[in-house]
Design a protein around this nucleic acid. Structure first.
Length: 190
DNA sequence: GGGGCGATCTTCT
DNA sequence: GAAGATCGCCCCT
């Protein structure tokens, strides 16, 4: 069984955890996923919570597909659709491949992929990728050798259901979009 | 290093 | 009419 077929069976919470440490490439540009957030089907903070709309349709389609939406009218945010009409927001990468292209798209070496809007800009992700199958080009996912040490804590930038520790990070990474607060976060041994 | 604010689109009240 | 899974710039300390 291909790794993508296994991951397509996971719900958003398990998938958010499982994606940390995997490598994500778009047209060969990308790096290691160091930060994710889970959004569940019956989660007031999730875009799928109120049912299908024109823009969130991908969340109601098959798992292991892309859900891309516009944030605050300006930025794109990239999600992996999970098995339960949930999704995993990819919030930060450790940039490793295609640094020159990322620099050209971002215009600065600062925070190349540290933040959901920044990483879509660096990787060239837009609404053109919404609904695409992640098993096929331009996407490529490379599995991690083993489960790394992780942290979990409260999700960022939301007001509803903000108390759930559904944000995951690679322990000690300097590419997180924000540090995990000491209060409300905990380590997940590998 | 950190707080305030504007940009700009989609949905919902 | 307002809020939102954001970011970058400006200003202050």
């Amino acid at each position: 069984m291909r790794i993508s077929a296994q991951l397509a069976t996971l719900n958003a919470l398990a998938l958010a955890h499982r994606l940390i440490g995997m490598e994500l490439l778009v047209e060969g540009v990308g790096g290691t996923i160091v930060e994710t957030e889970a959004y569940l089907a019956d989660d007031p903070a999730s875009h799928s919570f109120r049912g299908p709309t024109r823009t969130n349709a991908a969340m109601f389609g098959p798992a292991w597909h892309a859900y891309v939406y516009r944030s605050y009218g300006l930025h794109w945010c990239f999600n992996v659709v999970a098995a339960d009409n949930g999704a995993v927001l990819i919030r930060a990468l450790d940039p490793q491949r295609g640094l020159g292209e990322m620099l050209a798209r971002r215009g600065t070496m600062k925070h190349l992929c540290s933040g959901p809007g920044r990483l879509t800009q660096a990787l060239g992700i837009s609404d053109a990728h919404d609904g695409l199958d992640l098993k096929t080009a331009p996407f490529a996912f490379i599995d991690r050798p083993h489960a790394p040490e992780m942290i979990c804590g409260p999700r960022i930038g939301i007001t509803k259901a903000a108390e759930y520790p559904w944000r995951f990070g690679l322990a000690g990474s300097r590419f997180l979009s924000l540090p995990f607060p000491s209060k409300g976060s905990r380590a997940i041994p590998s």
